[in-house]
Design a protein around this nucleic acid. Structure first.
Lengths: 219, 219
DNA sequence: CGATGTCATGACAGTTGTGTGACAAACCCG
DNA sequence: CGGGTTTGTCACACAACTGTCATGACATCG
């Protein structure tokens, strides 16, 4: 939910949570778009009158980034606004003050229609190494490898940030979901992963150690 | 358009034609449903207060027959009606008198979302395994198999996402419609399904286990 | 050129994940 | 009702995986 009025944001958020929704609420379009990029929501509720980037522009940008369902929740009841918002890419438009039951019903109706998502990076390729997160497959020079779950998740994590160094701590958090723990554990699994994805040359070609910092997957 | 008031039907019909739509207008739910069965429209506009079968029932029946987008155009502005109509299967609800520009924009917004007509995969074939979801038939090397309902649904679910890993949780939700439950249940049914669709070789050829992630049907 | 910190790797024991057969409850269909 | 079928639960066996540790190699620096 992108809504700059604190009172409305709070009360509407709580009301929707009562209806069984999980709500993430922010006050500006900038925050909303960042949040959506970070961790996409199923549906976006957006006000039109926002400080900074306004609702219309926000809708256009959200629409450009993906096809998340968007409902405008606005106090403006002018037909021009409705038309403009829908043209910008919104899916529905309700006028404040809004009955939560109605909003909830419209959310359900919209989600019935929404495409069964289609997020997910399809395939990533790095110098002979092909990763298909969806299919749970990794191919090296076209041959399918059999990775363990941990190896697979570790590789995906590195691949998603290919070229960037990830610290052992970051990897522990993201792959193992440990907040603390022995960082050497990462080393062991990197080693095992290397045996499978490197071509037996003396020095690693793909999965590089950055001494003192962590590991990275070569682009 | 299903609308019993002659004046509104005429004027709204003409106005929409001005907007570029082709309109077929009838006065009763019975006519509307017959017309829709005869020659399906892209979108249905329906009033709630109709003689004979009322709007709610009309929506339910239209929805049962297919997933044509439905917009309610009603003079009733009570939240209960809105919720009831959306729950019955409507996609949007606008209140009379309606601005044609707004209705037109909502029509466009809805049609953006509408599924690109019946996907309905007729027949799927995977390495000697032929699945006909419509007919409820599965053939292995041309011989019809007798699957139980659960096995069939499980297979269809996997087939619809062939090549992609589905977690036990996803399968539980989609095949059993359990939100939680013992994931081992999936294993058992996968085992039973395998006995029927695999060619008795030691390792599965079609229905693969992806350790730690779930199962997938080999493309 | 040692001293020190960092990293790679093989071995191993405990844990986890998966396949399967047995069984009872639920269901279906005359 | 009553038979067969289907379904869900359970327990066990086995293989695969994980995390820990010890050892040694290697880089860096004073």
């Amino acid at each position: 939910m992108i809504e700059d009025d604190d009172r409305i944001r709070m009360s509407l958020g709580l009301a929707l949570e009562d209806e069984g929704y999980t709500v993430r609420a922010v006050a500006t379009a900038e925050e909303g778009m960042a949040s959506q990029r970070q961790e996409p929501a199923d549906t976006v509720l957006v006000d039109l009158m926002l400080p900074g980037i306004d609702g219309f522009e926000c809708i256009r940008q959200l629409r450009r980034d993906g096809d998340v369902p968007i409902i405008v929740v606005s106090a403006r009841d002018d037909t021009h606004d409705v038309v403009a918002a829908l043209e910008a890419g919104a899916d529905d438009y309700v006028i404040k003050p809004v009955a939560v039951k109605e909003l909830s019903a419209r959310l359900r109706a919209l989600r019935r229609r929404a495409r069964p998502v289609a997020v997910a990076p399809q395939i990533m390729v790095f110098n002979g190494l092909e990763i298909r997160p969806q299919a749970g497959e990794v191919l090296l020079h076209g041959n399918q490898l059999s990775l363990t779950r941990t190896e697979f998740r570790l590789l995906c994590e590195l691949a998603e940030h290919a070229g960037l160094v990830l610290s052992r701590q970051q990897l522990l958090e993201r792959v193992w979901e440990y907040d603390y723990g022995d960082e050497r554990l990462v080393d062991v699994h990197i080693g095992r992963l290397r045996q499978k994805i490197e071509d037996n040359s003396a020095t690693p070609q793909r999965l590089l150690t950055v001494r003192g910092l962590g590991y990275k997957l070569q682009r």
